[in-house]
Design a binder for these strands. Structure first.
Lengths: 334, 334
DNA sequence: CTGAAAGCGCTAACAC
DNA sequence: GTGTTAGCGCTTTCAG
């Protein structure tokens, strides 16, 4: 059932049917009604490919992220998908993997071929070494064909928009809290090297410096493998004299909590722990963990609004910030 | 830059270019190389819409689920996306919402218009009252145009495939464990009414019956609102004489754990708790919870394999089962 | 307000 | 091996 069939059945030309489909004001209400009836009777829907060919768009947006199974990204995808669907867009999702930046490039190249109308990149992973890193040139390249939106990231370039959580100051704030509780030997626990991580580390340094505390490289603790991995690694080689842990994500923080339990260290009396992301596992554990909310939804929303502005011919800000919020729970003292 | 441009630049006809694009054996290696070079120099990629129009497919598969922000579905989407990408398919994702079955219908209708090559439905939500529920007719309707695959679900019909976790027997097994530990007043804690839930409830009844324990309607405890909600509701009105809780998902189980902590009930000494889904929060809490692994990945994989078989002209089984696995941890006694 | 006809860029049957 | 050409189903001038 195509536009010709409908035209024939309705006794009009295909041009008229097309106009009805697109709700053009150039058609009389009468013929509109007639054509609509025929379309419904045959439950006709226009062929999206043909439509795409003619129009050059199928109203889809591309979402690329390292891994949807990650709760943070899943939340972002869910929100973006929902919002953009309300504006009539479908979403093509592509997970690019968490390791190799080259895979990111391949993913972007691939999804661009789908002639999407906009591209969302989720996670600071795509930011690499900073806003001007030449390794992100593929993003600038992509931006030549569609607007690109970074959720918790920004890359300088024409037609590129991004929103960032100020991880640096949020971390500084979190570490300040620990310091204000009298903590002096604060472990920085992390498991990746992303832009976001570097910002957190810097915030950690900032807080220490402001308090006149020494920066001790041995307090930067790297551990892969999630909850179990962190627990295991800490049991193996955590410096014994620490009195607090700032973890770059909640999974690590829970691992730290389990380490403390197993090592017979009481939390928060002997050891304070702060996590990051304010995810469900931060409230599943016991004691519940203080955690920094990295404002995933807010970042998504900023980008979505930028896209909406763009569609209306307005020019949105290229780069926006939001503050992380420290959500305080039992595992810090005060 | 289209096929005509490339043809001109390479000094061949568009047919030849098309053949090169599709790696047809009918072209000499020499001209193939020449055309390829021109394509690369201009980094030409064929227009997917035109291709779709001619071929009737753009090699995309549709994934519909109630909510990707849910960890279970996120895992499923991640796996399906990854596997099918390896086979050259892109994925369109659409979240249909968790409440209204009509939204599911709308989502399916919408995504079908995209001329997808297959449809995945994630979650037993879509199964409604059973395999033959007329309210799932829209799925049978969809199956007339593309094969439909249900992850943890099945609907009887031509061209419909599904894989289910045997939630009934897994639950029975879990409740049996509780009974074998001497528990007699076992609360059944739940928050939805899906096919899967009904199976769990039945498994719960089975275990009680087999052990000669009475079925007490007051032990069926409904609670919305996740961890906090469950804790709150239990504090308010949990029967005082229970000695175990079987929770239909880990979130509820953790809520139960928090309830016990707050009510001063020791786990597992006075109260055993078993969760469902074997998710990360079941190992974030303390004590870690025994939980049933509902085999999300396995169910996805079965469906993916069915699709692959179908593409090769084989006829896969319409309905498959997998067993849930009881993962035992500290919160049960033995 | 409506219709005729020229694309949109590609595939595939058919010639050579 | 390669080229010609007729669609695929829709949008959009351009006429009327």
């Amino acid at each position: 059932m195509n536009i010709y069939d409908i035209a024939k059945l309705a006794g009009v030309s295909i041009a008229t049917v097309s106009r009805v489909v697109n709700d053009s004001p150039l058609v009389s209400e009468k013929t509109k009604a007639k054509v609509r009836r025929v379309m419904e009777e045959n439950n006709y829907t226009p062929n999206v490919f043909a439509r795409g060919l003619g129009l050059g768009t199928m109203k889809t947006i591309g979402i690329v992220c390292p891994d949807v199974a990650d709760v943070y990204m899943a939340r972002a995808v869910a929100l973006i998908e929902k919002s953009l669907r309300e504006s009539g867009y479908d979403c093509i999702l592509q997970c690019s993997g968490k390791k190799d930046p080259d895979d990111a490039r391949a993913a972007v190249t691939n999804i661009l071929n789908k002639k999407i109308d906009a591209l969302f990149l989720i996670g600071s992973f795509y930011m690499l070494e900073g806003e001007d890193d030449p390794d992100t040139d593929y993003i600038r390249e992509a931006a030549k064909s569609v607007p690109v939106f970074l959720v918790n990231g920004y890359v300088r370039g024409e037609n590129i928009y991004g929103a960032l959580c100020d991880d640096r100051s949020a971390t500084e704030q979190a570490v300040n809290l620990l310091i204000s509780e009298g903590r002096k030997r604060i472990l920085f626990l992390y498991n990746t090297d992303s832009h976001s991580l570097r910002e957190k580390r810097q915030g950690y340094f900032d807080a220490l410096a402001a308090a006149g505390l020494p920066i001790d490289e041995s307090l930067l603790f790297f551990s892969l493998g999630g909850i179990e991995g962190a627990k295991h690694d800490l049991l193996l080689s955590c410096p014994k004299d620490i009195d607090a842990i700032f973890a770059a994500n909640d999974r690590l923080a829970v691992g730290a909590l389990k380490y403390a339990r197993e090592a017979g260290i009481s939390v928060p009396d002997e050891l304070s722990i702060i996590g990051y992301d304010n995810s469900e596992i931060a409230v599943s554990c016991d004691p519940e963990l203080t955690s920094v909310d990295s404002m995933c939804e807010t970042l998504c929303r900023i980008n979505i609004n930028s896209l909406r502005s763009l569609l209306q011919g307005e020019v949105p800000a290229a780069k926006s910030y939001t503050k992380g919020i420290l959500v305080r729970r039992a595992s810090t003292l005060l």
